[in-house]
């Protein structure tokens, strides 16, 4: 079977847009159903998950204190696209924010410092290395969906996780909640 995720991003995007086109053709004109549109930052969202940004910044990007130290809020960040790319690439010296570029502080210059210069401030190495395109994609995802957003909402949460988990339930407004409380109790299954 073809591994969709293994395809280069551009081809994937092409596929998605072709599918979207087919779907929109499939619906007769005049119907109110909205054709699904491909989000160009989906690739960045995938990086956000794969590189475990959510491990500290959480899915909503607000980060927060706790066992993992204090991951900064990407919702409240004032960093520009270039600064986000630099931070993901090189990490933040003296903090728990890892670097995600292979060779950072060695052959890749980071804040004008080498590993020796950084010494005790050397940030940790990310659990996975990202290619420059991945880092641009995750930066674009943060700019489009996280930076400047207010409190996390149910719609945002479902967009992130789809509907497979109850992780989003707490963001439902009262009117969105099922009145059948037994959904959370008893012998369902």
């Amino acid at each position: 079977m073809m591994n969709f995720n293994a395809l280069p991003t551009t081809i994937r995007l092409l596929f998605v847009s072709v599918i979207a086109l087919n779907v929109s053709i499939g619906f007769a004109y005049g119907q109110s159903a909205q054709p699904p549109t491909a989000d160009p930052t989906d690739a960045g969202k995938a990086v956000f998950k794969r590189a475990n940004c959510m491990g500290c910044h959480k899915w909503h990007g607000n980060g927060g204190g706790g066992y993992g130290g204090d991951a900064l809020s990407l919702r409240k960040t004032e960093l520009t696209r270039d600064q986000i790319i630099e931070t993901v690439s090189c990490g933040r010296p003296g903090t728990g924010m890892p670097f995600f570029v292979r060779g950072a502080y060695d052959e890749v210059k980071c804040y004008g410092m080498t590993r020796q210069d950084a010494a005790a401030l050397m940030p940790p190495e990310g659990g996975t290395f990202l290619r420059p395109k991945d880092i641009e994609a995750v930066a674009d995802y943060v700019l489009a969906h996280i930076k400047g957003a207010g409190d996390p909402s149910y719609a945002e949460c479902v967009a992130f996780f789809s509907n497979a988990s109850r992780v989003c339930d707490i963001y439902k407004t009262a009117s969105q909640k099922p009145d059948d409380a037994s959904a959370a109790t008893g012998k369902s299954q």
Binding site: G65, G66, G69
Partner: peptide, 8 residues
């Protein structure tokens, strides 16, 4: 959300 008043 974490309610830890700090971190290690």
């Amino acid at each position: 959300e974490f309610w830890t008043g700090g971190g290690p």
